[in-house]
Design a protein around this nucleic acid. Structure first.
Length: 484
DNA sequence: TATATTCGGATATCGAGC
DNA sequence: GCTCGATATCCGAATATA
């Protein structure tokens, strides 16, 4: 099924509906009263404070049966926002197995949302776009050594997202317009933390993170890795020309420069003669290529792409993390280019150390080569149970090897397909482990990344639409844990 | 307006191994 | 001669900032 046209068509259809539902839900025709109960904005006749949740849901366009079931299962005193979340999650689960017909989508749209296409909708959207605006310097909610205004750190999370289960979602910062607004709208209107890994290592990596973690008393992993190219590659210093003024590498990606390319650069420089500084047009030509392909100087007039070991080191992984096990060069580049920068993510996750001194249970979605697991381990947070969802067999081998080599005492469960993570199996895990403490993952960025010339088609793209699977699973975990 | 950056994908080619 | 993996080269645009 993975990759098949039918599967994709089905997922696309599901996602279309999901987007509409949540975007519209995101308008919040509901406000929070002083008692913490939600009620519809400008319509006092269906206040939930009066115990009229059922009528309100019907008015919102929910079907009687699902409204009734949801109230039964959530409890009569549950705030209406939580009931709506419950229903949405149920729909997502249902849709994951059976795509709704177009007729049903039309029905939902016409009944439930027709009254929401108004001024407040547009206002809300504008506000969201503004909220997801990326700042000039991507320092997130603070980086070590850079003072940040307290108002940035003391953010206001929606009350229903405070506390466990903690979640952490990551993707590229520079997406097509509107993508982060949509992601944020799904993930409870939480403001993304846009942060560049250049504050943690010698390479840039502009990423957005949406999470409900506390942000005070964060700390860095030790030892602090080199933060400039020159510190990271001391052997290259003698060969580094004065006219290459880079101190940080650009984003480490999955594609690397070729050997013939580096040879062309060498020839171009040497054309200008022995011991002569090249003319400006040659310097510009060379610098463009060096920046584009992240080349470093490794000899006289000789540049080279990073090797996989160097990439591993820059990304914060242990030496030889992706080496062996029959994994080729090209594949290592691909795996590492798609990974977390460990020091950066660990900085965010560091607040979990005091919260879970006995260790944590992790649901790791799109695990890759285990950036999150490595970060938690290096922070000294014991991994009690880790469910790792990752379709690449190579990645699973890497994570399994790391798990064994670091003598983990906990339990690691591999799940190859995200669609296997059903409510049923989640319920089983939650009951077995006592719940998940952290749901973490970065969904595929293929269709969001700037380097993609073929299929940069946004959040609904073939791969990047897996974001909705992250959302579906997170929703299920939140509701199941609340129910248990 | 000019410049810089970007967790990429499709295709052809090459060579090792069979 | 075939398969298969590795390699090389081609392919611009969206976005932001100066």
């Amino acid at each position: 099924m993975p990759g098949s046209d039918d599967a994709n068509a089905e997922r696309d259809e599901t996602n279309t509906q999901a987007t509409d539902e949540t975007q519209n839900r995101g308008h919040h025709m509901i406000t929070r009263s002083k008692s913490g109960i939600y009620k519809p904005k400008g319509n006092t006749t269906s206040s939930c404070e009066e115990g009229n949740t059922f009528s309100f849901l019907i008015e919102m366009g929910y079907e009687a049966e699902e409204a009734y079931t949801a109230i039964e299962r959530c409890g009569k005193d549950t705030p209406i926002m939580d009931v709506i979340e419950f229903i949405d999650a149920a729909r997502m689960r249902h849709d994951a197995h059976a795509a709704p017909s177009e007729v049903k989508i039309e029905k939902l749209q016409s009944n439930r949302y027709k009254h929401e296409l108004n001024e407040s909708t547009r206002f809300k959207k504008q506000k969201m776009d503004k909220m997801a605006h990326r700042p000039n310097k991507m320092i997130g909610f603070g980086v070590p050594g850079v003072p940040v205004p307290p108002m940035v750190i003391n953010r206001n999370l929606p009350h229903y997202t405070i506390g466990p289960p903690y979640f952490y979602y990551e993707n590229v910062a520079l997406t097509p317009k509107g993508v982060w607004s949509t992601i944020s709208r799904f993930l409870y209107d939480i403001e993304p933390e846009f942060l560049d890994s250049q504050y943690f290592c010698a390479a840039q990596r502009k990423r957005g993170y949406i999470h409900n973690l506390p942000t005070n008393n964060r700390f860095r992993l030790l030892p602090i890795p080199p933060t400039t190219i020159q510190e990271a590659f001391p052997l290259s210093r003698p060969w580094w020309p004065a006219w290459d003024t880079r101190t940080k590498l650009n984003c480490l990606v999955t594609c690397v420069g070729s050997a013939p390319l580096t040879e062309r650069i060498k020839i171009a420089i040497e054309k200008s003669g022995e011991n002569e500084e090249p003319p400006s047009h040659i310097k510009k030509y060379v610098m463009n290529l060096c920046k584009k392909w992240n080349l470093i100087w490794v000899g006289k007039n000789r540049v080279a792409p990073l090797d996989p070991n160097e990439m591993e080191s820059l990304m914060g992984f242990p030496e030889n993390h992706t080496r062996g096990g029959g994994i080729g060069h090209t594949e290592r580049y691909k795996l590492l280019g798609n990974s977390f920068q460990v020091d950066t993510v660990a900085y965010h996750l560091s607040v979990l150390k005091n919260l879970f001194p006995g260790g944590i249970n992790v649901l790791s979605l799109f695990t890759g080569v285990g950036g999150a697991e490595v970060a938690l381990h290096r922070l000294g947070i014991p991994l009690k149970n880790v469910v790792s969802v990752e379709m690449s067999k190579t990645c699973r081998i890497v994570v399994q090897s790391w798990w064994e080599e670091t003598n983990q005492k906990g339990k690691l469960i591999h799940v190859p397909d995200v669609r296997e993570v059903t409510e049923h199996i989640l319920k089983k895990w939650i009951s077995e482990f006592g719940g998940f403490d952290l749901v973490i993952g970065g969904s595929p960025c293929n269709n969001l990344a700037g380097g993609n010339r073929v299929s940069r088609d946004g959040l609904e793209g073939q791969h990047s639409s897996l974001f909705y699977e992250y959302y579906r699973i997170l929703q299920s975990v939140r509701h199941l844990m609340r129910a248990s």
